[in-house]
Amino acid sequence: MRLTLLLPLWGMLTMVSAAKQPNIIFIMADDLGWNDVGFHNPKLKTPNMNWLAKEGIELTNHYAQPVCSP
């Protein structure tokens, strides 16, 4: 009987603690050019990507290694 009372309470506590954590989405696309999204090129229609860039953070300064090796 005690277990049936504690399980709903545990579920509510985990939902509250999960709601406080930040939502982080990291999108990385291979061969996506600078002008291939609507927030850089107004000729293209990418409303979802535009919204994500407007409401979130766009990381624009990054570096890559020229050789693909471990």
Results as ranks from 00 to 15, higher is better:
Val37His: 05
Ile25Thr: 08
Ile57Asn: 04
Ile25Lys: 01
Leu44Asn: 03
Thr60Ala: 03
Gln65Glu: 08
Tyr63Val: 12
Cys68Glu: 12
Trp34Thr: 07
Ala19Ile: 02
Lys43Ala: 08
His40Gln: 15
Asp36Thr: 09
Pro47Cys: 06
Trp51Leu: 13
Ile57Ala: 09
Gly33Glu: 10
Leu52Met: 15
His62Asn: 11
Pro47Phe: 13
Leu59Met: 15
Phe26Cys: 04
Ala19Leu: 09
Trp10Lys: 04
Lys54Gly: 01
Leu3Met: 12
Trp10Glu: 05
Leu6Pro: 00
Phe39Asn: 04
Ser69Trp: 10
Leu5Asn: 06
Ser17Met: 10
Ala53Tyr: 01
His62Leu: 15
Ala19Asn: 04
Pro47Asp: 09
Pro66Gln: 08
Ile27Pro: 00
Thr14Ser: 11
Lys43Trp: 10
Met15Asn: 09
Asn35Tyr: 10
His62Cys: 13
Asn50His: 02
Leu7Val: 14
Ala29Pro: 01
Ile27Ala: 15
Pro22Tyr: 06
Met49Asp: 01
Pro70Met: 11
Pro42Met: 08
Asp36Trp: 10
Arg2Val: 06
Glu55Trp: 02
Ala19Pro: 00
Leu13Lys: 03
Trp34Met: 14
Ala64Leu: 13
Val16Pro: 00
Ser69Pro: 00
Asn35Lys: 09
Gly33Ile: 05
Leu59Asn: 02
Asn41Met: 04
Gln21Met: 13
Trp10Gln: 06
Asn41Ser: 08
Met15His: 07
Tyr63Glu: 13
Pro8Phe: 08
Val67Pro: 00
Ile24Ala: 07
Tyr63Leu: 12
Thr4Lys: 10
Trp34Asp: 15
Gln65Val: 03
Leu44Met: 14
Ala53Val: 04
Leu44Ile: 15
Leu44Arg: 10
Leu9Ile: 15
Cys68Leu: 14
Met15Gly: 06
Ile27Leu: 15
Leu7Lys: 09
Asp36His: 03
Ile24Phe: 05
Phe39Lys: 03
Val67Arg: 10
Glu55Thr: 12
Thr46Met: 05
Trp51Val: 00
Asn41Thr: 06
Gly56Ala: 07
Leu13Ile: 09
Phe39His: 12
Leu59Val: 05
Thr46Asp: 06
Glu58Tyr: 05
Tyr63His: 11
Ala29Ile: 13
Asp30Thr: 03
Leu13His: 09
Leu52Val: 02
Cys68Gln: 10
Leu9Asn: 02
Thr46His: 04
Gly56Phe: 00
Gln65Phe: 03
Thr60Lys: 10
Asn35Gln: 11
Met28Thr: 13
Met12Ala: 14
Pro8Gln: 07
Phe26Glu: 01
Val16Ile: 13
Asn48Ser: 05
Leu44Ser: 03
Leu59Trp: 06
Leu7Thr: 15
Pro66Lys: 04
Lys43Gln: 08
Ser17Ala: 09
Ile24Met: 12
Asn35Thr: 12
Trp34Cys: 07
Leu9Ser: 07
Gly38Ile: 05
Ile25Asn: 04
Thr60Trp: 00
Glu55Ile: 01
Asn23Leu: 14
Leu59Ile: 10
Gly11Met: 14
Ile25His: 05
Val37Asn: 01
Asn35Gly: 12
Leu44His: 01
Lys43Val: 02
Asp31Thr: 14
His40Glu: 14
Glu58Leu: 11
Met1Ala: 15
Gly11Asn: 11
Asn41Ala: 02
Lys20Leu: 03
Lys20Ser: 01
Arg2Ala: 11
Asn23Gln: 14
Met1Phe: 02
Pro47Asn: 01
